[in-house]
Amino acid sequence: MKILIIIIQVAVLTAIAPLISGIIRKIKNNIRMRRGTSVFQPYYNLAKLFAKNEVVSENASWIFRVTPFVVIASAIFALSLVPLVNAGNNVNYAGDILLIMFTLMLGRFFLALSGLDTGSAFGGMGSSREMFISSLVEPAMMISIFVVAANASSTNQYLIAARGHVSFSAIVAGIALLMVTIAETSRIPVDNQETHLELTMIHEAMVLEYSGRSLALIELASHIKQIVFFTILANVIFPIGAGLAVYVVKILMISAMIGVIEISIAKMRLFRAVDFLTFSLVLSMAALVISAAGL
């Protein structure tokens, strides 16, 4: 039964993961008074890529070939661990919320390696920057997760989601985690998914040499990773209300927030992003102090 719930959750969320990206793009376009593409555009892109041939660099090793599968496996595995609708339903089968964080690191590690694998200077640049941003994100993410977990006296994501109230410290930690989410999902002001200007891209530079089916898997994994973070924000940080409808509303609200943030600020250059991440670390430390004080 538990296995069935997990499989349904993974299947449904994988299916709607690209849609979220499409919705965010649509929101951004509407605010900019543009018509924009359909919300289903990410699906069209994936379908196109799955049908195409792959070009692989002659310098690449097996790391390059195996990376898409490691990335998608780590994203889907993380997805199978997040609490979806029924928070009280403890279907925990492999680990707690810390495992989710470490699992996402596994995918990123391999992506960064494959960025270096082809010998392309852009790939190396992307790897370097991605590891830079992600390592600076870690402490803020860990501390804010710890704060919320301390509210529930457990790092079990289902128990955190079932705690039923949102304390002040959880709100502050939630803001810190929103900033972390922006950085982790390669969004403005840290990175820009839409750019293909060589000097500014981070994530896109790393996967520059991928094509065809492998690129499709990596893009799908990015969509999934995004929904993992959104679900953590929606259900673990703010576990108010139950049921599928509430979840959908919360996810749409987060998407709208991210969309508005993306169009309201310009992308920061790489070393200003450090300030952005430092601010999220300070927020998470503040949340820690507030939570230690019992609020």
Binding site: E54, E58, T118, G119
Partner: peptide, 14 residues
Amino acid sequence: LGKSKVVINKTWDC
């Protein structure tokens, strides 16, 4: 989708 059709070529590097 069948076996992936892979072409081995030089690194694109933009």
